[in-house]
Structures are given as structure tokens and as C-alpha cells.
Design a protein around this nucleic acid. Structure first.
Ligand SMILES: [Mn+2]
Ligand SMILES: [Mn+2]
Ligand SMILES: [Zn+2]
Ligand SMILES: [Zn+2]
Lengths: 156, 156
DNA sequence: CTTCTTATTGAAAATGGTTTCCATTATCAA
DNA sequence: TTGATAATGGAAACCATTTTCAATAAGAAG
């Protein structure tokens, strides 16, 4: 029965190949992990999850792939101030668009999805204007609020 | 001629003391550097500038002070992806409110001050709503756009 | 001004996330 | 199937940031 070779997955392979890169086992495994979570994973988090299914994928490759994905605009790299970078897939049915409140004291992260409509309104205009004025191809964005969480607010 | 002791500077001392900290020579020197520039300096950048006026201030103290200032909300810590953190004074007559476009490929930074009015509109509402909903005391924010700069856009 | 408590500091060493090296392997166009 | 070369993994190197700890200085009290 021909014509029914793997037609699964949205086809990350195409994304990679389209950018001139090859699709490999490690890369596929990493994409699987990223698209299967709604948390902001660190490189090591991802490495450990990948390791369960593909024990021979190295941490170095995870870092390399993450850098690649970030450049391709498929992943956003965050710095929440805990000493390690964290990554989130840009387009994911798993997680809805959100941003973060970061406690400057205890580093606690609060995700919120409020005000996304108003944000869209603002961002649409800003992105259009900025990409034209600076001839910059905007792929994605980060919005983070810093301050004190309720716990830290009420201390000494 | 009494009564004319140093009345210079907005008085960072008060800011520190008000938070229960002491005002010291190193801290004053660091504040002088921060309030005298409109660039995003790294810890080492600041250390070198401080070193010119106060040669005995150590790099460790610069890091410690920066962490303190970040927690106090007087400084914002940025990660532009070049391996070192960068810092900007929140309130500064020197620099006007701005945000950044970051090239995901070459890491070039473009500062922009456009759309600040629309942003203010959006932020005012978001901050008010978020701080109430999450009981979070928002001190400041970061907005960054990622993508490809004109140079990197036209490659390969 | 002097004293006393303790927050702050500087130098050196340690830390640890991320990058670099390089020999080996795997992808995919031909 | 083959060949050019992109990709990989393990170990070593990197290097920004943190930790340690004895010495110092800020500032409240007297
Ligand atoms: Mn998130
Ligand atoms: Mn800036
Ligand atoms: Zn907190
Ligand atoms: Zn660029």
C-alpha cells in the first residue's frame, strides 16, 4: 500500500529544510518536547525530557538547536533572572499567547493572558510602523513586568 | 559659612536609606555612572567607568549594587543575548523612555522611542488591571521585539 | 567626637550555564 | 549507492556571575 508514508506532525522538517537546514533525529525530538509542553523549559529541562525517548542526544545539540530555533523565530528565549535561559515555542496550540510578571525579589513568575486584545491592538500598529521605519523583520516579542509579588511586598 | 553642606545630586542617599540600606562611596560612584549615560552598560562597563574616579571599587561590589538596584526597581536588567547582562536606570533625565528591536541573527540592538503614547495608553490599563488581579506591585517593564535586521534579512 | 554594631566591601576562589573543539556520523541531493 | 558536508556528542574550555571571608566603614547611640 504505497502513498501512505508518514504524513504525521505539522512537518517541522519542512520548516528546517526551508531555511536550508537538515531535519535530524535530535531536532525532531527537541521539537516534540517543545510542542508537548506549556512551560518555559531550560536547556537542561529539555535535554532530560529528550533523553527519555532518545538517550543519545547530547546536551550540546540541545543548545545548538535552541539557538537555531531562536534565530529562525520559532522559539523565544527568556531570561527570568534565575541564571539559566528558558525557551518557549512561539506558535503552539498548547499554550495561548501570554506574558510574565516577574518578582524582582524572589524571581517568582506569574503568567497572565489578560489584556491580550488591547495588546494586539497596540502591537499590530507598533510592529507595522517599526518594521517599516527600521526595515526590520519582526518575528515575535517579549513583554515583561517587574515588581514585587504579594509575598515580597509585605516583608519588612 | 555653615549650612551649606553638600546639597548636590537628587539624593540617591535617601533612596538607599529609605530602603534600609546605607549610602556608600562605591554606591554613589555607581549611581553617578548610571545617571551619566544613556547607553545600556554591562557590569564590567560600569566597573571600568567607576574605576576612573574611584579606583578601589571592586567588580564584585558593582554586581552586588546592580542586583540591589534591580530589586529596588531603580534599574532594569536586560538580556540582549550577547552573554552578559546590561543595565539601565529606570528614571533618567538623560534617556527618554524607549524599547528595543533585537536582531535574532547578529544581535544588533535598535532603540526606538516611537509609539510611546499608544504604549502608555495600553500599559496604564494593563498595569492597573494586573497589579490588582495578581496583587503585584509593578515597578517597571520591558518590551522587546525580535526578528531580522535589514542586513541579516538580505542574506543567503 | 567617640564608641559600637553590623552592613558593606574587595580579592581570590569557586560556580555552573553555555560554548568551543574535533573526530565521527548522518542527511539528502545527485 | 555515493559523496559532499551539515550535524552530532563528549570532553575541555570559557567566562560572566556568585560565594567566601577577613577587613572596613556607615551611621545610630551616647
Ligand atoms: Mn511563559
Ligand atoms: Mn536601551
Ligand atoms: Zn516575590
Ligand atoms: Zn542582524
Amino acid at each position: 500500500m504505497p502513498g501512505r508514508r508518514r504524513m504525521m506532525s505539522p512537518g517541522w522538517g519542512g520548516k528546517f529544510r526551508g531555511c536550508g537546514y537538515r531535519m535530524t533525529v535530535p531536532r525532531q525530538a527537541i521539537m516534540d518536547v517543545l510542542s508537548g509542553t506549556d512551560k518555559h523549559l531550560s536547556a537542561e529541562d529539555i535535554y532530560m525530557k529528550v533523553h527519555k525517548m532518545s538517550p543519545d542526544v547530547g546536551l550540546t545539540t540541545v543548545y545548538r538547536t535552541l539557538e537555531l530555533l531562536t534565530q529562525m523565530g520559532l522559539v523565544v528565549k527568556f531570561d527570568f533572572g534565575d541564571g539559566r535561559a528558558r525557551y518557549e515555542l512561539t506558535e503552539g496550540p498548547k499554550s495561548e499567547h501570554h506574558h510574565h510578571l516577574i518578582c524582582a525579589s524572589c524571581k517568582r513568575i506569574i503568567e497572565y493572558t489578560d489584556f491580550i486584545d488591547e495588546e494586539m491592538e497596540f502591537l499590530k500598529r507598533a510592529e507595522k510602523g517599526l518594521s517599516k521605519k527600521y526595515n526590520f523583520d519582526i518575528k515575535n516579542h517579549i513583554i515583561q513586568f517587574y515588581g514585587l509579588c504579594d509575598k515580597c511586598k509585605n516583608k519588612k
